Amino acid sequence: MVAVLGGGGFVGRELVGRLVALGHVVRVGSRNPEGDQALARFPGDGRVEFIKASVNDAASLERVFASADVGINLVSIMSPDVRAMHRVNVEGARLAALMARRQGVEQYLHMSAIGASLTSPGNYGRSKGLAERAVREVFPEAALLRPSVIFGPQDSFFNMFALIAKLSPVLPVFAPETLFQPVYVGDVARAIIALVEPGYEGMTVEAGGPDVLNMKELMAFVLEASGRRRILLPVPGWVAKLEAGILEALPGHLLTRDQVAMMGVDNVVQPGMADLQALGIRPAAMRSIVPDYLRGSVCESWRRFRK
């Protein structure tokens, strides 16, 4: 029995599908189980159960983790509302780990992020750093996985910029020199499954792909992969903050001031940290996957971005 909080999200869908294929019973806890019913149709010898749950509700978390062998928390938010972000990312992470511990869960994994740090320049990065500390305080053996930017057919990174490129003659480049190490969602799911095996208790892994590119190079790749020619327009930091101040107030929060702050820090696997290779995973390259899903229409790009 594998209990997954946030199983209906981008990473969660990939993970649940792989767990079902491996024959596991997967209990998905989410705020909207009615909207996650497609997970029950994944092929395999396993099956999926659904429970309405919130990381801030102890009673629902007890139901999710009851009789589970493995617990996985994928839930986090990036929001201009700092209090809401702290409530979900930090308080929710602590409560989920505590309830898993009390229910006798043997293996536990918390999804973090590269850049998680108590000294991060962004509220999101600090919330993820606080979450790691909170989880380890109540569940010391918990494994932590810190991915870089995650790509895949329903990602919100490449799809968003490809959508902009389809609608605009210019493609903005924020923090052009900041480095990123995009990692395939399938490799993230494989890493999670590996880390909840016995023997990896208390391990922290940073997940990045084989390519390290700065933001300007990534935007050039988006244009190449989507088959478009556009002007790459570097955006000065002060302009980015001004734009973010406007966009974060609109529905969807396409860009926030916190994201701008986080973009100023390289998002790559740090020297000396365990990586995907430490789990026996050879990460997939962007060029082998991304072009296949960026060449669709504007409507297709919008649907993928909104998922």
Rank of each mutant, 00 (worst) to 15 (best):
262 M>R: 15
269 V>C: 12
246 I>V: 15
234 P>C: 13
247 L>V: 11
247 L>E: 12
207 A>H: 05
245 G>Y: 08
250 L>D: 02
237 G>S: 10
246 I>S: 03
257 R>P: 02
218 L>R: 07
216 K>M: 12
206 E>A: 12
209 G>M: 04
215 M>Y: 14
240 A>D: 00
240 A>V: 08
271 P>W: 08
240 A>Q: 09
221 F>D: 07
241 K>Q: 13
208 G>N: 03
247 L>A: 15
219 M>D: 01
214 N>R: 09
227 G>L: 08
234 P>V: 13
245 G>E: 11
245 G>A: 11
241 K>E: 11
258 D>E: 06
253 H>V: 12
259 Q>F: 08
219 M>Y: 01
259 Q>S: 11
264 G>N: 09
239 V>D: 11
249 A>E: 15
247 L>K: 13
235 V>I: 15
271 P>Q: 12
273 M>V: 03
227 G>W: 09
267 N>D: 04
223 L>W: 06
235 V>C: 08
208 G>P: 02
229 R>D: 12
264 G>D: 06
246 I>Q: 10
268 V>A: 11
218 L>H: 05
223 L>F: 02
247 L>N: 03
229 R>G: 11
208 G>F: 00
216 K>H: 10
225 A>I: 00
221 F>A: 11
211 D>V: 10
266 D>T: 12
263 M>Y: 13
250 L>W: 04
241 K>P: 00
223 L>S: 05
238 W>D: 12
227 G>H: 05
223 L>E: 01
